[in-house]
Design a protein around this nucleic acid. Structure first.
Lengths: 348, 348
DNA sequence: TTGTAGGCGTTATCAA
DNA sequence: TTGATAACGCCTACAA
């Protein structure tokens, strides 16, 4: 049960633990012959440095704690997590991921776990409760926020949602659409103004591009307080919004949905109504998560999910090694329209 | 930077470290007054037991290592992971998850990481390389395999795919379908006979139920060597199989796809061909992952993903605490047909 | 009811 | 080029 220790390796190789350590780390002077002898014992015994003991001694765990909002139903954060993992591993770090499931208390429990393991940095993707950010900050380790920040006291990586949303709108307008509906999260619903920028930008681009052309019409705008499918056994907000518009006999030739999940519901409603995409109605989503699995392949605004994770991990590790403490900064990545098959010329 | 230690708490409270330990663990005799004094210092200083030091001392990390096949594009294993996490946390364990992305070398790296952290048990969901199972076994800690086992030397949790697939077929037959197409992974393609049972059972139920009624027709069967969408920017095998059948003018009124991802591609092809689901063609998937996001809501065979994870974690923890070593065993969970909106009466 | 002290497996300093 | 040894923070006999 007990695994091989440096001491037993030293003993079997007839050297001191210091020498074994030098061999394992590949630094310091070790005679080639001695080195070989040690290496032989290491491979015979399957000796592997005990990270726990090493961390204790070094007062550095080489673990990055990653608090994840959730992985289901929206797989966006799964991509972020993959980015974090890929980068941390390339730098010799281990990622400890904790799923919050949108629950502030769970977020707190995750932090407690991280701190008890003395993680070297914490990444929030995304923070649920601002108090928890303050709590993390007290540990005096780097804290990074991804996508929706709730505090300006840490480094944070955000996305320029406006540019991508504007691209999407211009794409639709260029196709001749004049009646474009919108469904998304209502700006101001999030209890934190920093985190709200996402919805402000997405809806803002929609609003700006239409108002300027006198095409804005509140009757075909659905602003809810969430934009995921709450229950995976039923249709979500996207479905219900479109169904209502059909019931009200609203006219529209395109729908801009502020997430792929909402867009999935939009497609369900259109399908059920017997109309076709994009011949009758064009649909654009946001995120590029479900987009390639829907019928038709969904045109969407891609968020740089993997890159968000990588950048977060990179900043975390930079801060771990930094000599001096720099001021928290905001980094902004770009979103980008991906044209697939759910958008076409407006019906005349 | 340095966090509070048991020693400094003891010092500030004017007691010994042993007393602080007794208070922290809530065992042993401690005078109420002393206890309060210690607790006060603990909350003032934010002292938190150092899991690293504790693990070293106890020779138990309280970490379960979970090797994940992948989280994307198929979110099935995300659900398994949630099950593992939920159970381990309820038992005071921490889960260290490592994404293998289908790469045996990455699987090996994950194992190395786990072993260096002296995890108390390892869960494979699912193992990619049998050699890695042997490797894990050498560490003399419990090893559990989920869904597709590749070795009978460990506990393993499998799913009765046959029953669910049979339910699906009977559902279609009852709706009057006589021309039912199949798309899935080819039995025998997996390089391991143990792991192959999934495809054998799914296709077996299809085959058995049709042959018995003389409805089996190889021309509408597509057996590939993978059943996920390889590239998220394009359609996958499900799409191409159905498209080919249309080109060949094959007749079929229903498609049974061996995964929701394949079913998504099937829907894309049908949609592109201008037909409707379920009026023209019925579709059934497998997994219950993407099913609720597709249009129409997909009828599918649900795998007990969360339960697979929970069970794996439970067995792992039971083995950790077991006095004697029991023989590896196979546990079998059930799959279940979920009827939604993609299946209807056969066109006459 | 409380304290003392050794040791878990490493690392790193200092001597040799 | 190598070795002895003192920590790292915690737990737990064993003493008191």
């Amino acid at each position: 049960m007990k695994s091989t220790t440096i001491k037993s390796v030293a003993h079997q190789a007839g050297v001191s633990t210091a020498t074994v350590a030098r061999v394992m780390h590949g630094n310091g002077y070790v005679a080639e012959e001695t080195r070989q002898r040690v290496l032989d014992v290491v491979s015979e015994t399957g000796y592997r440095i005990n990270s726990i003991a090493r961390s204790l001694k070094r007062n550095r765990s080489n673990i990055i704690g990653h608090l994840l909002q959730s992985m289901l139903p929206n797989p966006f954060f799964v991509k972020v997590a993959r980015g974090v993992e890929a980068y941390t591993e390339s730098q010799g770090y281990t990622t400890l991921t904790y799923n919050v499931q949108g629950d502030p208390a769970a977020e707190r429990r995750g932090l407690e776990t991280f701190l008890s393991w003395r993680v070297d940095a914490i990444i929030f993707s995304t923070a649920r409760d601002q108090k928890n950010i303050e709590f993390a900050l007290k540990a005096n380790i780097p804290v990074i926020q991804v996508e929706r920040p709730r505090s300006s006291k840490t480094d944070r990586i955000t996305v320029n949602n406006y540019a991508g949303a504007l691209e999407a709108m211009e794409h639709l307008l260029k196709l001749g659409h004049k009646r474009i509906a919108y469904i998304g999260q209502k700006p101001g619903v999030v209890d934190n103004k920093l985190a709200d920028y996402v919805d402000i930008e997405r809806f803002g681009a929609y609003q700006d591009s239409l108002k300027k052309r006198n095409l804005f019409d509140e009757r075909i705008i659905a602003l809810g307080k969430s934009y995921t499918l709450g229950d995976t056994s039923a249709q979500g907000d996207g479905y219900h919004a479109v169904k209502r518009w059909f019931d009200e006999r609203q006219k529209f030739t395109a729908v801009f949905a502020a997430s792929d999940i909402l867009a999935a519901g939009v497609l369900q409603a259109i399908h059920e109504h017997g109309l076709r995409v994009p011949q009758d109605i064009s649909v654009i989503g946001f995120d590029d998560t479900f987009a390639p699995f829907l019928a038709p392949l969904l045109t969407t605004v891609r968020l740089p999910a993997h890159e968000l994770g990588e950048t977060a991990a990179r900043l975390a590790i930079e801060r771990i090694h930094a000599k001096e403490v720099k001021k928290p900064k905001e980094y902004r990545l770009e979103s980008q329209l991906i044209v697939r098959k759910s958008t076409g010329k407006a019906r005349s």
